[in-house]
Every structure is written in structure tokens, then in C-alpha cells.
């Protein structure tokens, strides 16, 4: 009970502190003394699951970023969506004495304590994408779904000239990314004449997106744009519209912009735009290198997003403000 109160306090404190702007704290007083430079460093990477292409991409990004640094050796573990297995992985890393842990946790609450223990035992911990509670970690790197959703909304508002009929294909609405991409989008189109005529939960799945889009097409003769919470969803909607012969009159916008999905679709002219939801893999390795060198790092890094459109895809997209 006492610990709960403590934790709650910590969370509240962190939220108050974190609400303003990115917190530029000095590197935490990691309990261990600055480490002596070593010839090789072992990094343990605990991924919560490899069922989603996005997470496969995250691992690939980490691997790619670490490759130019022969002194880094990254050990990957896949928790297969099992919180307890991920917890065990963290403990294994600690007992194996790795030099740094990167974790993309499945859930906050159950992994907070294992991460804190690792951190207290002197191992720096980088938390990627999803947060843990409290402040017992070295650095938290994540993108902001709400911000991306808002950017998408604003882009759509501009693209449609402030009015039009939009279909929203939502990700799993019980997941925070789905909720944030929805809320951000509404924020982005607020005050415009854009009307969401049909919204459905496609559970991040392309076949489901196609089915829902077919229903939307059956009901509405005029649809100007489809906003899907991920690129496969947008692609599924495109396939439905194509089958109905209406793909030329509708624009499709997705999120994630993985190289072989969203970016490819934009390049092929299927999607009008895709907003990158960065994996943070590259940033994680850069931050890891800083930490291992003993340089200070911020407590939280909010990743920027990139926008890919027909015009900018060849140039590797454009930075979002």
C-alpha cells in the first residue's frame, strides 16, 4: 500500500514536471560510477512482441543503427506479448550483466518494478515507445500519437479546402494509439466543415478495413477522403474503393509510414499521404552511445514525425513541425 502511494506520487510529480515542455534534465545520477570505457558493450533489447511489422521494423532499425559501431553487441529478446516473460527477460539481462537495457514494454504497471530494479542495480535503461511508471529509468523515447493525429487532421483540412466527407477507419479503440490518433484527428479538423460520415473499428487489420470500407461505399455515394489509423487500413480501403471503381474520386491517408508499407503505397500513388510513426530505434542507439560514453541525456525524448506525400516521398519525406 505504502509503495502504491509512493508510486502515485512519483507519477503525479513526473506528470506535472513533464507537462510543460520536454524535460531537459541532466543525466540521472545513475547509482553506478561513470563506467570505464570498455572495448565492447552489450545491449539487451526486450521487445514486447514481434507480431506487428512496426515492431519488427523497430528491431531492424536498432540493428541497422548499431551496425556501424563494432563496439556494440545487441541481444534481442521477444516477449511474445507476455508481460511476465518480458519481466523475466529484464531480469535475465540484469543477471547477465549487460551494459545497457532497451525495453519496449508491453504494459506500464507490471514492468515498472523490474525496470526500476535494473536501473538501481546500475544498468542504464532506455524505455522505448510505451512508458513505465515513475522515474526509475534513464531515458524515455517515444513519438506522440495525438500530435500525429492532429497533424493528419490539419493536413486533411488543408487538402480538402476546409470541407468534405470523410470516412475514419479506426484502430483498436481499446488501445491508446487508437484513442490518441482519433482524438488528435478531431482536434486537427476542429472548426472546419469536414464531416466524418462513417467511422468503424477495423482493429488495425487490412481485411477488416476493406470490409468496413465496402459498407461505407454502399451507404454513401460521396466520399472525399479516408483517414485510416494505419497504412494497411488505408490500403484495404483503397482496395475496396478500387473494386467499386471509385478509387479515383477518393483520397486515402494513413499513419505509420513504414518503408515497405505506407511509404511504398505513397510512392505507388495509392495513398495521398502517410504520417510516420517513428520506431525510435535509431534514436535509442544514439542515446545508448551517449550514455555509455558518460554523456548526459534528457529524461524524455519526443520523436518527431515525418510526412510522406507524392511530392516528398522521393526526397525521403518532410519533417513535420
Amino acid at each position: 500500500m505504502k509503495r502504491m502511494v509512493c508510486l502515485a506520487g512519483l507519477v503525479a510529480g513526473w506528470m506535472v514536471a513533464g507537462c510543460g515542455k520536454p524535460v531537459e534534465q541532466a543525466a540521472p545520477a545513475t547509482p553506478a560510477a561513470p563506467r570505464a570505457a570498455k572495448a565492447t558493450y552489450t545491449i539487451g533489447m526486450s521487445q514486447c512482441n514481434l507480431g506487428e511489422p512496426w515492431r519488427v521494423q523497430m528491431n531492424a532499425d536498432i540493428k541497422a543503427a548499431a551496425e556501424p559501431h563494432p563496439e556494440l553487441k545487441v541481444v534481442f529478446k521477444d516477449a511474445q506479448n507476455d508481460t511476465l516473460r518480458q519481466r523475466a527477460h529484464v531480469e535475465e539481462f540484469v543477471s547477465a550483466g549487460v551494459d545497457l537495457i532497451i525495453i519496449s514494454p508491453k504494459e506500464a504497471q507490471p514492468l515498472t518494478e523490474p525496470v526500476a530494479k535494473a536501473y538501481q542495480s546500475g544498468i542504464p535503461v532506455i524505455v522505448l515507445d510505451r512508458a513505465v511508471l515513475g522515474d526509475q529509468y534513464t531515458c524515455f523515447i517515444a513519438a506522440d500519437n495525438r500530435k500525429i493525429g492532429k497533424a493528419a487532421g490539419e493536413w486533411i483540412k488543408q487538402a480538402l479546402g476546409g470541407k468534405g466527407k470523410v470516412v475514419e477507419l479506426k484502430g483498436l479503440m481499446t488501445s491508446t494509439p487508437g484513442q490518441d490518433r482519433h482524438a488528435g484527428f478531431l482536434e486537427g479538423i476542429a472548426g472546419s466543415g469536414i464531416e466524418v460520415v462513417f467511422e468503424a473499428d477495423m482493429k488495425w487489420l487490412e481485411p477488416d478495413a476493406r470490409k468496413e470500407m465496402e459498407s461505407a461505399l454502399a451507404r454513401f455515394d460521396a466520399i472525399d477522403l479516408v483517414y485510416a489509423h494505419n497504412d494497411p487500413g488505408a490500403h484495404g480501403a483503397y482496395l475496396a474503393a478500387k473494386a467499386a471503381g471509385r478509387d479515383s474520386s477518393i483520397r486515402f491517408v494513413g499513419i505509420d509510414a513504414l518503408p515497405q508499407e505506407g511509404v511504398a503505397y505513397v510512392a505507388q500513388g495509392i495513398l495521398a499521404a502517410s504520417f510516420q510513426y517513428p520506431t525510435g530505434g535509431q534514436e535509442a542507439i544514439a542515446t545508448a552511445l551517449q550514455i555509455l560514453k558518460g554523456e548526459p541525456v534528457p529524461k524524455q525524448i519526443v520523436l518527431g514525425s515525418r510526412l510522406f506525400t507524392k511530392a516528398s516521398v522521393a526526397a525521403g519525406g518532410e519533417d513535420l513541425p
Partner: peptide
């Protein structure tokens, strides 16, 4: 490899090459 096998084919250098949707796909989805 855990990724979707799509028309974006990754080359050895990591870049993506886009290929056309095979005719058989089009034939079935019509």
C-alpha cells in the same frame, strides 16, 4: 521474416524497389 510480403521489395542495400501487382492477384480480385 515477420514482415508483410508486399510489392515493396527490399534490396540488399536496404532500399526499396516497387514491383507491379502480379497478374494472378488482379485476376482473382476482380
Amino acid at each position: 521474416g515477420g514482415m508483410k510480403v508486399s510489392t515493396a521489395v527490399q534490396e540488399v542495400d536496404g532500399a526499396y524497389r516497387y514491383v507491379a501487382v502480379p497478374a494472378v492477384f488482379r485476376a482473382i480480385d476482380t
